[in-house]
C-alpha cells in the first residue's frame, strides 16, 4: 500500500506535465483513461473467455458408434416413432431399442450402407449392445413418464425431441465435462435461451411447459403451490 504514495510522485507523467496541475493529482487524472483502457481490455477478454472459449472447453464432442438415419427408418416402419420407441405393457417406456429389437429386422445385412455393415459386424455378430449416446438422457433423479405425456397429454414426440425423426444422420454428441450430461439438456445456447420447446430440457423447462398447459396444472405442492416434487423426481 505504501507504494501508492510513491506512484503519485512519478515525475515523468506526461499528463501531469501538460496540465501543470499538482503532480499527485495529475498522475491520477492522466492515467485515468489509460486505466480505463485496461478495464475495457479486462472486460472484453473475460467476456470472450466466458461466452466463446468457456463453452468450447466445457463440452467434449463425441460421435455415435454408428451413424443412424431416423428418416430412412421412419419410412420403412408402419407406426412412426412408436415402432421402435414404444410404451411397454406395464406403462414404462422402452427408450432406445435394444440389440435384440434391432435384430428383428437386421438379422442379416439388408442394404449396402457402410454403417449397417459396421452395425452388423461389430454388434450383431458379436452380440454386443450398441453403446448409443442418448441426447435426451435425464439425470438419475428424474422420473419422466412418457406415458403421462404421450397418452395422458397426447403430446407429440417432437415437442421435446425436435425433428430428430426426420434427420438423416446423428449429430455429434456433446457431453458436459463436469456433469457428464448431454448438452441437449442445457441447450446449445450457452446463455440458456431457447427458441423451440425442444431446445432445452432442464427442470425449469419442464415447469415452464407445465405452467402454460393450464389444463393439467399441477398444484399439489403445499410449499410451492406447483407440482409436488415426486411427480417428476425419484
Amino acid at each position: 500500500m505504501s507504494t501508492v504514495d510513491e506512484q503519485a510522485k512519478v515525475p515523468d507523467s506526461p499528463a501531469g506535465a501538460e496540465t501543470g496541475a499538482p503532480p499527485a493529482e495529475a498522475a491520477d487524472e492522466s492515467s485515468g483513461s489509460f486505466i480505463f483502457l485496461f478495464f475495457i481490455i479486462g472486460f472484453f477478454a473475460a467476456a470472450i473467455l466466458g461466452w466463446v472459449v468457456f463453452p468450447k472447453v466445457l463440452y467434449s464432442t463425441q460421435y455415435q458408434p454408428i451413424d443412424f438415419s431416423h428418416a430412412e427408418h421412419v419410412e420403412m416402419v408402419d407406426e412412426g416413432c412408436e415402432s421402435c420407441h414404444y410404451l411397454r405393457e406395464d406403462g414404462s417406456f422402452s427408450g432406445v431399442p435394444t440389440l435384440a429389437e434391432c435384430i428383428d429386422c437386421h438379422e442379416e445385412i439388408n442394404g449396402d450402407s457402410e454403417d449397417e455393415r459396421i452395425f452388423y459386424e461389430e454388434y450383431v455378430a458379436k452380440d454386443r449392445e450398441v453403446p448409443w449416446l442418448v441426447y435426451s438422457r435425464q439425470p438419475d433423479c428424474v422420473f419422466f413418464s412418457h406415458a403421462a405425456h404421450i397418452v395422458g397429454a397426447e403430446m407429440e414426440c417432437a415437442t421435446c425431441h425436435g425433428d430428430i425423426g426426420e434427420s438423416d444422420s446423428l449429430k455429434p454428441y456433446q457431453e458436459n465435462r463436469i456433469t457428464g450430461y448431454s448438452r441437449d439438456i442445457w441447450g446449445y445456447n450457452i446463455a440458456g435461451f431457447k427458441r423451440n420447446t425442444w431446445d432445452r430440457m432442464k427442470m425449469d423447462d419442464c415447469s415452464d411447459c407445465h405452467q402454460e398447459a393450464g389444463g393439467v396444472a399441477h398444484s399439489s405442492s403445499v410449499q410451492t403451490q406447483r407440482g409436488a416434487c415426486f411427480v417428476c423426481h425419484k
Partner: peptide, 11 residues
C-alpha cells in the same frame, strides 16, 4: 474489468 466481464458472462 475482468471480473465485471466474467460476471456478465455465463461462466
Amino acid at each position: 474489468g475482468g471480473a465485471a466481464g466474467t460476471a456478465l458472462s455465463p461462466l
